[in-house]
Design a protein around this nucleic acid. Structure first.
Length: 560
RNA sequence: GGGGUCGUAGCUCAAUUCGGUUAGAGCGCUGGCCUGUCACGCCAGAGGUCGUGGGUUCAAAUCCCAUCGGCCCCGCCA
């Protein structure tokens, strides 16, 4: 009977088995030849005569033989105590010389891996990632099902929305000049499902956003999309924590719940980020108030004009070289550079000012002998300081091991975009905090929202919120944002037909798997990813299409 | 859209600073030898549009311009 190569053990000695797999490598000693045969579960050594010596790497073979205990064992292999003595052998498929070895440790460029993805996916590490992804999807479905959530598929061909990311568009053949759009998320459909009375919905949903890519961003990606009726924020948070706990357990990682929570405001003030990496122990301090009269004219002028002085303690000091590299890092991010202080025998550093003030700064930052503090002065520098925090920790190696989850709550409802227009921080269907409804029009930027993001090690895993279920309030928000109500008239109308209070969350499934797999790019947990410029090197997508296809669609390509 | 970095043999890289003989190495590949290997070993050999196009020059992998592609970052990502 057929067995997986990697499943054979000492207890199988004496059995007649068949294995089918790929030739990993041969070791030809003349009249005695060894070969490693690989399948999904691992490799096993076969041994035979000259005929085995004809095998070449990546040929697909069927081997019949008897499992025997090895004369010389290999303790570094799980099948290392046994081998298969070949009785008959069939080559099922020959193979070209592979572009690279199918081994985890072989160094090969991502370009080549993506070009030959089907070979790259033969590597144990990639198989482990893809299988882990499957397990985590299964666990998520089982968990949500057990809590009464119902998986519903929502359309892939849907309506373009004016806000948010660029849409991928699909031209309509029957209605020339009109377009479907691929969904950026199933947001509106899941709200409609709540209005439909489904009560609890989820979906492993494909989402599409036509924006520039990163190590953790692909043009198409998968969300675990969840929505429920009559929720409290705490309920959604608890359900999500349980979901993540189960999913990580599937990869053998135990995480403790509940996660700590920060408000957006706290996160920004203390960590300079709305997705802080809590593996880094540094915290940011606002030293603005104690710095008037400190004798540093540059900083005093910054404060006069509404800026701040932020400081951060780096325990156990930085060398001059490290300070220089942080300084150039900040300058590259268009900052003015950093100030620093270091306590040795006295206070040293490039921060000018009177001694009394400097001592106050040191006290306030709890600086002791050997410690360094870095400072940035200016307006809108919280995030700059946040970047400095991460950079300094990487330089110093002050990033702890482990999985540090947290919730960031109470995001502002609105923010200003680069052109100074009011936009939604989350999306236009997010409910404002009850107490802020009255200030929506007067002081929109001060209004908070009923939102929560879940963050792991500085990476945003997902976010959600309580939605608006009142048509009037939804109209008001759209009006404040300057969005034509008609774009969402179907939603408004639905809200007028009996909409329960509802809310939910959307989790980035690829990112969750990436973290659980210990990978640094979501490309490594997606079977067929695109490059950072959005190409598929395997298929050569995107590609030209035939003229008749375009004619059917009423599309003319203009040279750009 | 912007910045950085890389592109030389099937793969990973060297030679590029400061132009100059025949562009090298390891792995892989091909052939030969080898009965306990497991990164098998030994001997011999083949293999190159130096990403692409243009320019400068007596001469370009090397200098200049453009362009294509990989990766990372900023902008962007409701």
């Amino acid at each position: 009977m057929r067995r997986y190569c990697g499943s054979l053990r000492k207890k199988d000695v004496g059995k007649d088995v068949v294995v089918k797999g790929w030739v990993q490598r041969t070791r030809n000693l003349g009249a005695l030849v060894f070969a490693d045969i690989r399948d999904r579960e691992g490799v096993v050594q076969i041994v035979g005569g000259k005929e085995v010596g004809a095998l070449r790497p990546e040929w697909v073979v069927e081997i019949k033989g008897k499992v025997e205990e090895r004369e010389v064992k290999n303790p570094s292999l799980s099948t290392g105590e046994i081998e298969i003595k070949v009785e008959s052998m069939k080559v099922l498929s020959k193979a070209k010389i592979p572009p690279f070895h199918v081994l985890d440790e072989v160094d090969v460029s991502e370009e080549v891996r993506l070009r030959y993805r089907y070979i790259d996916l033969r590597r144990p590490r990639m198989q482990r990632n893809i299988i882990l992804r499957h397990r985590m999807a299964m666990v998520a479905r089982t968990y949500l099902d057990s809590l009464g959530f119902i998986e519903v598929e929502t359309p892939i061909l849907t309506k373009s929305t004016p806000e948010g990311a660029r849409d991928f568009l699909v031209p309509s053949r029957n209605y020339k000049g009109k377009f479907y759009a691929l969904p950026q998320s199933p947001q509106l459909f899941k709200q409609l499902l709540m209005i439909s009375g489904l009560d609890r919905y989820f979906q492993l949903a494909k989402c599409f956003r036509d924006e520039d890519l990163r190590a953790d961003r692909q043009p198409e990606f998968t969300q675990i999309d969840v929505e429920m009726s009559f929720p409290q924020e705490e309920q959604i948070i608890e359900i999500t924590e349980g979901l993540l706990k189960e999913m990580f357990a599937a990869s053998g990682i135990n995480i403790s719940v509940p996660f700590p929570q920060l408000t957006y405001r706290e996160a920004m003030n203390r960590y300079g980020s709305d997705k802080p990496d809590l593996r880094i122990p540094y915290k940011i301090d606002d030293l603005t108030e104690m710095s008037m009269g400190g004798g540093n004219r540059i900083i005093e002028e910054v404060i006069y004009s509404g800026g701040k002085l932020l400081g951060m303690k780096i325990p156990n000091g930085l060398t001059r070289k490290e300070i220089d590299s942080l300084n150039s890092f900040i300058k590259e991010l268009s900052g003015d550079g950093i100030f620093w202080l270091k306590i040795e025998d006295g206070i040293r550093g490039n921060l000018k000012g009177n001694e009394e003030w400097k001592e106050k700064l040191c006290d306030s930052l709890d600086l002791h002998k050997g410690d360094t503090a870095v400072f940035v002065a200016g307006k809108g520098i919280k995030e700059l300081m946040g970047s400095l925090r991460v950079k300094a920790a990487r330089i110093k190696g002050d990033v702890e091991e482990g999985m540090k989850f947290l919730w960031v709550r109470d995001f502002p409802l609105f923010e200003l975009d680069s052109e100074g227009n009011l936009t939604s921080n989350h999306h236009p269907f997010t409910s404002p905090a009850n107490e802020d409804v009255s200030i929506l029009e007067r002081e929109p930027l001060k209004a908070l929202s009923r939102t929560y993001d879940v963050v792991l090690n500085g990476i945003e895993l997902g976010g959600g919120g309580i939605r608006i279920n009142d048509a009037e309030l939804q109209r008001k928000i759209l009006k404040i944002l300057g969005i034509e109500e008609s774009r969402f008239s179907f939603l408004i109308e639905a809200l007028e037909h009996g909409a329960p209070p509802h809310g939910g969350i959307a989790l980035g499934f690829d990112r969750i798997v990436m973290m659980a797999a210990g990978e640094e790019s979501i490309r490594d947990v997606i079977a067929f990813p695109k490059t950072t410029s959005g190409l598929c090197l395997l298929t050569g997508t995107p590609s030209d299409v035939d003229k008749p296809q375009l004619r059917d669609l009423g599309i003319k390509i203009t040279s750009s």
